[in-house]
């Protein structure tokens, strides 16, 4: 059973001076309905917001280890950032409705339990694509692509790297809009986490992460490029079985990079890969709009500094030459 999250008082409280009960809001505010999933960072529940007409929410339980300086600085800053981002109400970012903490257990085990309360979206892109009866119409692909990149661009403009973009944490609303979830403090796992207990999908990982080189926001553009390709085929573009298999698949697709682009300080040698020639992406993505093809090619570039940025993508002719729905 979920411990009762005592709710944060949400100012301004609309209550008359006689309404003392408003003061005792610390009672239970959310009712747990079912488990949605468990990740390395915490658990996600489906719950009912008892104070807002019973709307369904997704509650992410996040455990934070306390330090001798109290709540870690990084956690405090992430909460600040998530709350601040929420004020923008960006259409392609999942709504963070509330933050609560999980009772008084913090003194006992030096652990803080936070509940991040998100809007609940029934479907993710993974299930959306598997349920699609046939190829998605071009207009739908275009608007979904635009949604994804707009969300990424918004995060990047706030100096947030998502680091784990994939169809599983892209939510599809009933109206067909795509929203990014699972970033920042709310992430369920991280690229640096080498956890064997969690099956982390490698399919959307860019080469710099697989090689253990330095990475930056361009990481998300690669992942988004893989997702965009998948919108066309409804199949993952690079379904690798291991780190090494993933790299081989990448180089078979885009060609083995020139020595000049190979990052320094990585333990894997360029020569451990055959000199794959680049493939024509159009053969893998038949019937694709030429602009869409060009965009995806620009996102799947080996050298992160030569990859399109999210902002570049939004200015690509694929989105600018015809109106996006």
């Amino acid at each position: 059973m979920m411990s009762r999250p005592s709710t944060s008082q949400s100012p301004p409280v609309v209550a008359s001076i006689n309404d003392v009960s408003a003061l005792f809001q610390n009672a239970q505010k959310y009712e747990e309905l079912s488990l949605i999933g468990t990740g390395a960072y915490g658990t996600v529940y489906k719950a009912r917001d008892l104070h807002n007409g019973g709307q369904i929410v997704a509650m992410k339980k996040v455990k934070v280890a306390l330090t001798e300086d109290g709540i870690p600085l990084s956690t405090v800053r992430e909460i600040a950032l998530l709350r601040q981002l929420e004020a923008y109400r960006h259409p392609n970012i999942v709504r963070l409705l509330d933050v609560c903490h999980g009772g008084q257990c913090l003194e006992r085990d030096q652990q803080l339990v936070l509940f991040l309360v998100f809007e609940h979206v029934e479907q993710d892109l993974d299930s959306f694509l598997s349920r699609a009866p046939g190829p998605l119409p071009e207009s739908r692909i275009r608007s979904m692509s635009h949604d994804i990149i707009s969300g990424v661009d918004f995060l990047h403009s706030h100096r947030i790297v998502h680091r784990d973009l994939k169809p599983h944490n892209l939510l599809v609303t009933a109206a067909g809009r795509v929203k990014l979830a699972d970033f920042g403090l709310a992430k369920t796992y991280d690229v640096e986490m080498k956890l064997t207990s969690v099956v982390v999908t490698l399919w959307y990982r860019p080469p710099e992460v697989l090689l253990g080189a330095r990475y930056c926001s361009a990481l998300d553009v690669w992942s988004a490029g893989c997702v965009l390709a998948q919108l066309h085929t409804r199949r993952p573009l690079l379904p690798g079985a291991s780190d090494s298999d993933q790299l081989h698949r990448i180089f078979r697709l885009i060609g083995r990079p020139p020595r000049s682009e190979w990052p320094d300080n990585v333990s894997i040698e360029l020569d451990s890969f055959p000199s794959y020639p680049p493939q024509d992406l159009a053969r893998i993505l038949p019937r694709i709009h030429p602009h869409a093809l060009d965009l995806i090619k620009g996102m799947l570039v080996f050298d992160p500094s030569k990859r399109l940025t999210a902002m570049d993508c939004l200015e690509h002719p694929y989105f600018t030459e015809e109106p996006v729905a």
Partner: peptide
């Protein structure tokens, strides 16, 4: 304190 600030810390 964080809770009373409704986690609006920025």
């Amino acid at each position: 304190l964080m809770q009373q600030l409704n986690y609006h810390l920025t």
